[in-house]
């Protein structure tokens, strides 16, 4: 599941595979802006992962995202 989510994030950001890992901080990735962030949250919905709006907005890292997603 975690692998799938990393791949999904890379797809939205249009970056090479392996760029995003569990240690990635959102602020460190140029492509990961607020628009991309919303799209990532939206894309997670399509694989059955739902993070509430107010929590989603506050995420700062992949690790936090995994935690909120419960994966």
């Amino acid at each position: 599941m975690r692998e799938q989510i990393l791949g999904l994030i890379e797809g939205i950001l249009n970056v090479p595979m392996g760029t995003i890992t569990e240690d990635t901080k959102i602020a460190d990735v140029e492509e990961w802006d607020s628009l991309a962030h919303v799209m990532i949250i939206g894309e997670l919905e399509s694989i059955g992962v739902s993070i509430p709006v107010e929590e989603a907005i506050e995420l700062t890292s992949v690790a936090e995202l995994f935690e909120k997603a419960g994966v």
Binding site: S34, L35, V38, M39, I41, G42, E45, V53, A56, I57
Partner: peptide
């Protein structure tokens, strides 16, 4: 959800 997050 997307609408509330970013007017998408």
């Amino acid at each position: 959800k997307m609408w509330y997050m970013g007017r998408i």
